[in-house]
Design a protein around this nucleic acid. Sequence first.
DNA 1: GCCAACGTTGGC
DNA 2: GCCAACGTTGGC
Length: 152
Amino acid sequence: MNYWLMKSEPDVFSWDDLERKRRASWDGVRNFQARNFMRDQFRLGDCVLFYHSSCAEPGIIGIAKVVREAYPDPTALDPKSDYYDPASAKAGASRWFMVDIEPVQRFKRLASLAEIRGNSGLQTMLLLRKGQRLSIQPVTEKEFKTIKKTWG
DNA sequence: GCCAACGTTGGC
DNA sequence: GCCAACGTTGGC
């Protein structure tokens, strides 16, 4: 069992959108390191911290789980998509991958970035590291449990 | 392979 | 909107 944090801008795709859809494919990842995590390490049943970024109140809003392991992201081949990738189109196959997730539990209270920063048990989180912009990050079991216990 | 230029992320 | 930090691109 692995633990992850996935960032999404709520204006683009929010926790409410996930609950409404019941199941979502995580398309649009266009960073190699984030892709590699999904493609090589995401397993069925892995737990995901759903993080709202670039918004008034950034923070973790709930827990989701992986319900399908990596498969090619078709938006890379769609010229009309915001996520179109000419290099994939040229190669004739998507260079990018996605997984499917489902919502598990919305937190009682947002685990805001400010509160996470103030929690002595969470100082190891990659999220808090200066300059860390990865949209998909590994989380330790200990970090995950602390977050679930505190805000879940 | 170097590195400058450019684009993106994301908190504030 | 600002800007620090980082990733990617492309000329050489």
